[in-house]
Design a protein around this nucleic acid. Structure first.
Lengths: 107, 107
DNA sequence: TAACAATATCAAGATATATTGATTTAATGG
DNA sequence: CCATTAAATCAATATATCTTGATATTGTTA
C-alpha cells in the first residue's frame, strides 16, 4: 500500500507531471538545465526530482558535481501506463535550454 | 492536466484505495453498508465516495433515499490499470456487513 | 587546504486536504 | 403536513504538502 500511495502521490502535482514529461521528451537532464529551461529555483526542483526518484519514475547519475536525471528503465506496468497518460496530456512544454555547455555540463 | 491530477489525487489516499478495493470486490454497496463494514462515519465516507466518483472511478445510482455506489464501467485504460494495481495490493479487507436488510437496503 | 560550484537539505510560512460533529437536503410513510 | 431516515454539505480543527530563502554537503580546482 505504501509504495502505491507514494507512486500516486508523486503523480499528484502539476510541477512533477511537467518535470516527468520534460525529462521523458528531452532525455537525460542535469538540474541546471532544468532550472534554465523550466524557470524554477533549485531547491524546488531538487525536492520534486527526489520525490519522482523515490517513487520509481526517475533515476539519477552523478558525474562530478552534476546530477543527471532520466526516466528509469524499465518502468513497471503501472508507472509506464502513468507515463503514457502523461505523454498524451495537452501540455505546453518549454524549450530545452542548455545552461553550462562551455563548462562541461552537457548531455 | 486537471483531469489527470484529479485522478491521481483520488488515488492518493489510503481510505479511498480501501474503499475502491472494497466496492470492486463486493460489488454495488450503499453508504450504510460501507459504514457498517468499514466502520467509518457517514460524512467521511460521503466525501471520499464523491471524490472517487468525480475522478471517474465510481458511479452512483439512487434508489429512494439510498445511494448505491459501484465501480464505473467501462473504465478507461489508465483508471483500469490503477484499479488492477489496487487489486493486487496486500490489503486486509474487512468483511461485508449488510446493514438494513429488513428495511429494504439490499443489493 | 581554501575557494567555488552544483546539488541537497532545512526552517518558516502558505496552501491544500482529511477528520469530525452539526446542519441541510431529499425521499418515504404515517 | 410532519416525522423519520439516508446521504450530502458545512464549519472548525488537525495534518500534510508546497514554496522560498538560507544553510549544509559534496566534488573540483587552484
Amino acid at each position: 500500500m505504501d509504495i502505491f500511495l507514494k507512486t500516486a502521490s508523486a503523480l499528484n502535482d502539476e510541477t512533477r507531471v511537467l518535470l516527468l514529461r520534460f525529462i521523458d521528451e528531452n532525455g537525460e537532464c542535469c538540474v541546471c538545465d532544468l532550472q534554465n529551461s523550466l524557470d524554477m529555483i533549485q531547491s524546488r526542483l531538487s525536492r520534486h526530482l527526489k520525490l519522482l526518484k523515490d517513487a520509481g519514475f526517475l533515476r539519477v547519475e552523478r558525474k562530478g558535481t552534476w546530477a543527471y536525471y532520466s526516466v528509469r528503465s524499465p518502468l513497471d506496468r503501472f508507472r509506464l501506463e502513468a507515463l503514457e497518460e502523461i505523454r498524451h496530456l495537452d501540455i505546453k512544454l518549454p524549450a530545452f535550454k542548455k545552461s553550462n555547455e562551455e563548462k562541461g555540463c552537457e548531455v
